[in-house]
Simulated scan of single mutants.
Amino acid sequence: MDESFRRAIRKMTGASIVRFGSRPNRASMIANLSQVMNATWSIALFEHLDANDNDPSATMAGPETISFSSSAWKLWESEFPHLIDEFTSKFEEFHFKWNQRFSTDEIHRQLLQSQWIAQDTQGWYFSSKSTKQEIKNLYFSTIHLMVGDAEKLLVMMSSRASHLQERLSNFWYKEGATDAISKVLPCLEASLRSQETEMISSLRASLAEVALKRFYAGFSTGSKTRYYPTSMSCARNVGRQWDLNGAYENPFLAYTDDFCDYAAGLTLLICRWYQEKWSLYLRGFSRGQLDLFGQNSHSFNTNP
């Protein structure tokens, strides 16, 4: 995981990545996994395990590598790197585009035109009372379009990865699933697809939630009105909580950097997750691994 993504997670969510404090409990993880498996595919998985247990001699014949498809592996090797490179480039363009949209001159024009900054006898000031609804209105008139564009890219990448997943599955099922034992991995993968879809949908929905929450954090409620000598200097201080160190020309650029790093990191993380998932499945397993517990033991017994 890139450091820019780690930093963006801290900025956008206010929390660092959670790490396991100790070694995870394997039995507990498997139990939790079994609860999210699709019932139909779970039954099929059970039947394949039983079929193998009823005819253990069948596992002695066949190729050394079980559930391996050379065509699927070649497709995986060629397509996923291209997909990652493509969306890395798309997010670089996305970042550049929104940095221009929130340049100081442009954000000054937007805030002035929409009367978010105003002038009285004491000078220029941010006209919002910083209520939750007013800040939300400002969000929808500025940042909302950027978040929508990021969601489209995430959905586009997920759709492309899902389509590639279907192509991999077709090759894998045809070439790698030829008997009961070789169908175990394909059944396991298929049984988790629905949960996988829910996870991706949840991550997509969280993008807007995280963006809005971070936007709220840029404004403090109940603070005294600050006055500035010019409208430009006032615009440069709207949302100043996003850039307390003053590293950016205006706070919206600070927000844009953090959000773009977060959205790009999340999207590419999902893509790499698909890549690593299929790297694991498509390798299959060795026929020698069926006898890890001794020559006379049948580790696939599913009977209680």
Rank of each mutant, 00 (worst) to 15 (best):
254 A>R: 09
109 R>T: 09
59 T>Y: 12
179 D>H: 07
152 K>Q: 13
287 R>P: 01
121 T>Y: 07
115 Q>R: 12
253 L>T: 00
63 P>Q: 04
294 G>R: 15
196 E>K: 10
174 K>N: 02
6 R>T: 15
3 E>W: 09
86 E>Q: 14
210 V>F: 09
77 E>S: 04
280 L>W: 05
296 N>M: 10
280 L>F: 04
149 D>V: 01
181 I>E: 05
125 Y>P: 13
72 A>Q: 08
283 R>G: 00
29 M>D: 08
78 S>Q: 10
272 R>F: 01
87 F>Q: 11
150 A>K: 13
54 N>E: 08
279 S>D: 04
183 K>W: 03
148 G>S: 10
148 G>N: 04
199 M>R: 03
63 P>N: 08
121 T>G: 02
214 R>I: 06
3 E>C: 00
270 I>N: 00
288 G>Y: 15
288 G>C: 12
206 S>R: 11
97 K>Q: 15
216 Y>P: 03
84 I>P: 02
233 S>W: 08
213 K>S: 12
47 E>V: 11
24 P>M: 06
21 G>D: 05
172 W>L: 01
2 D>V: 11
223 S>V: 06
207 L>N: 12
214 R>V: 03
256 T>K: 06
266 L>G: 04
72 A>D: 12
232 M>D: 04
111 L>H: 06
159 S>F: 05
27 A>C: 05
43 I>K: 13
40 T>Y: 09
300 F>D: 00
94 F>A: 00
104 T>G: 07
273 W>E: 01
129 K>M: 14
239 G>E: 15
69 S>T: 06
224 K>Y: 01
67 S>L: 00
18 V>K: 12
100 Q>A: 09
7 R>L: 15
99 N>I: 01
182 S>I: 06
118 A>N: 05
18 V>E: 01
30 I>R: 15
51 A>H: 07
247 A>I: 02
17 I>P: 06
70 S>V: 08
82 H>P: 01
293 F>V: 09
136 K>Q: 11
68 F>K: 03
167 R>T: 05
279 S>Y: 05
300 F>A: 04
